[in-house]
């Protein structure tokens, strides 16, 4: 899965902000904010990843157990899916 084209991540005054551009600005009328670990997952999803890859990524950077990271990744992904921001692989 990966983030749809048309979302730009910028860090402004220490805040990680995602803004839709082009057609996505019409489809998604708003902005997103991320914390540091959310930014890590977002950047991994720009390149494309899966649940396992994202879980591993969290465990590489942070001191966290796999089950905790896994469930947190699921919650994060679920929120993006709800707003139709992800492209799912077939």
């Amino acid at each position: 899965m990966k983030i749809k084209e048309g979302y730009v991540l910028r860090t402004v005054a220490g805040e990680h902000i995602v803004v839709p551009i082009g057609n996505e600005a019409v489809n998604f009328n708003g902005i997103l904010t991320l914390n540091n670990s959310g930014k890590l997952l977002w950047e991994a999803l720009i390149a494309g990843s899966d649940i396992k890859g994202l879980t591993t990524k969290l465990m590489e950077i942070f001191v966290v157990e796999e089950t905790v990271a896994y469930h947190d990744v699921l919650a994060f992904i679920s929120k993006l899916r709800t707003h139709n921001i992800l492209i799912e692989n077939d």
């Binding site: 708003g30 902005i31 904010t33 991320l34 997952l41 590489e60 942070f62 001191v63 990744v73 929120k79």
Partner: peptide, 23 residues
Amino acid sequence: MKKEQEDRLIYEKPEVEIIEFQL
């Protein structure tokens, strides 16, 4: 293995806040 543990950061749950503009 211990060094690897020390190099990692204190965990923060990944959060995304979605702010939708109203018409």
